[in-house]
Nucleic acid binder design. Structure first.
Lengths: 253, 253
DNA sequence: CGACTATTTGATAGGACTCAACCTCCGTGG
DNA sequence: CCACGGAGGTTGAGTCCTATCAAATAGTCG
């Protein structure tokens, strides 16, 4: 049921069978949520943590006048920061961007798991640290980079993050969001996102039809974005890392 | 020696005398550092946490081509996130913006303190959560706001953060940084920061001569920035909160 | 005073936004 | 089966905000 989480953890550290079993047996409530629903609304009290199993969610903040900034994407295997339990209410909303299945954790379940299995606690820990590293990158992104650089950097990031959880097939992955949402992510308008995307398609950097994104030229994209995946702290010996796909088959004519 | 930290903690929770005493007796190494020195360099292994006692430090990331994004300010009483001890190296640098006195904590000291005094651990905890809330606000700032709004929001934030640690005198406080550094903070060029500052001075919003910033019209500034100090989670019953200065004396004619 | 850094000013260019219209796709329902 | 509506994508023209480049001015410190 919560396989994606295990997968995610294992992209950071190796889990024992006992740890995996404990996670699999954890008491969670699974829900299906339509696109564009709020899982948690800004200002609400918090009852539990939510883990995305499938789909695409995000954290965002909305200003009084309607402007919105998306703060982070929550991909399968990821969850909102469980530490906010300490607070009475959250200062941002969590919503779905596509149809999403989420598992809600009672805080007690989380507490039991992390106290019984220190390595699981450590895995949670590492995940929040990576989240923060991503947060810092996003600030650099909107603060310093041009529109083309921002889009390129985000696509590189998604390619690696999704690759680490086995959601990249060849060079393509599902990206079920709209151009307007991309704009809210990168501090750009939908119109401008659209124009830069056209440039990127023209230059054979990407293809993005329907909900499917294909990275046509990762090296070029990485250079444009000055992208270095180190901040994602992925174990590079994982066999499904996107980078491995470049290996040349040995059987040559 | 580490009074600023106690002050900061007490803007979140009340400490007992025993807790204060433990903090005061903690084993730390205090250093004076000139402006524009790095306390921690990106990629370095981490030996200890650093607490700013006096002055002005920041976290920042530099890109290959020289562009820099300042990620957060570290004010007196604040420290870099001690949780990064878990990692082998940091993904960003920490440097001083002005002459700063810092206390370096051996990780053992930190460990002893937090395990002996759960409320101290909780205070650290709350501080990192507030840091992250600020981080989110900054992303909204550079992602969604205009130059005027960004500057206004930052000045409001500093007014409240410095007020909470008793560094606001009337409506003015020390802001010993350059316009170029403001630019690196807000994703703007120094030239443009300069021009917007002139507008703000003309409109009697602020005065900023030398290193001293004076907020001339906080209500107007708050409206421009759509500023709401709630995210800073300051205890509103603290007697030195800036907000209290608005109270009307009871003795009216 | 002199060297340096920071601030200010001017002219110009360009990236991104605005507003509006139009197109395309797709699910719905008559 | 096709008309309809809505959401998302695309296009165009015009504007504004912000960056760039260069130079002058003001401050600071030894």
């Amino acid at each position: 049921m919560i396989l994606p989480l295990i997968r995610k953890f294992e992209s950071h550290i190796q889990l024992s069978d006992a740890e995996k079993k404990a996670l699999l047996q954890a008491d969670v409530a699974v829900n299906e949520v339509e696109a564009r629903w709020d899982l948690i609304k800004e200002g609400q009290p918090i009852d539990g943590a939510c883990l995305v199993l499938e789909g695409f969610a995000c954290r965002y903040k909305r200003m009084q006048d309607g402007r919105r900034q998306i703060l982070s994407y929550i991909l399968p295997g990821e969850m909102n920061d469980p530490r906010v339990f300490l607070l009475d209410k959250v200062d941002h909303s969590i919503g779905t961007l596509a149809r999403t299945t989420v598992a809600m954790w009672p805080r007690k379940t989380l507490f039991n798991l992390t106290s019984a299995f220190p390595r699981i606690a450590r895995a949670f820990w590492l995940c929040t640290l990576v989240d923060e590293a991503i947060q810092r990158q996003w600030l650099v992104n909107v603060g310093q980079r041009t529109a083309l650089e921002r889009l390129s950097h985000l696509f590189c990031e998604l390619y690696f993050r999704l690759g680490a959880i086995g959601r990249v097939d060849g060079n393509s992955f599902d990206l079920p969001i709209t151009q307007a949402e991309l704009g809210d992510t990168l501090g750009l308008t939908a119109v401008h996102v659209n124009r830069i995307l056209q440039d990127m398609r023209r230059d054979r950097l990407i293809r993005w039809s329907g909900k499917r994104m294909t990275i046509l030229n990762l090296p070029a994209l990485s250079i444009i974005a000055m992208f270095d995946p180190a901040y994602l702290r992925l174990r590079s010996d994982k066999q499904d890392m996107p980078g491995r796909h470049q290996a040349t088959p040995l059987r040559q004519p």
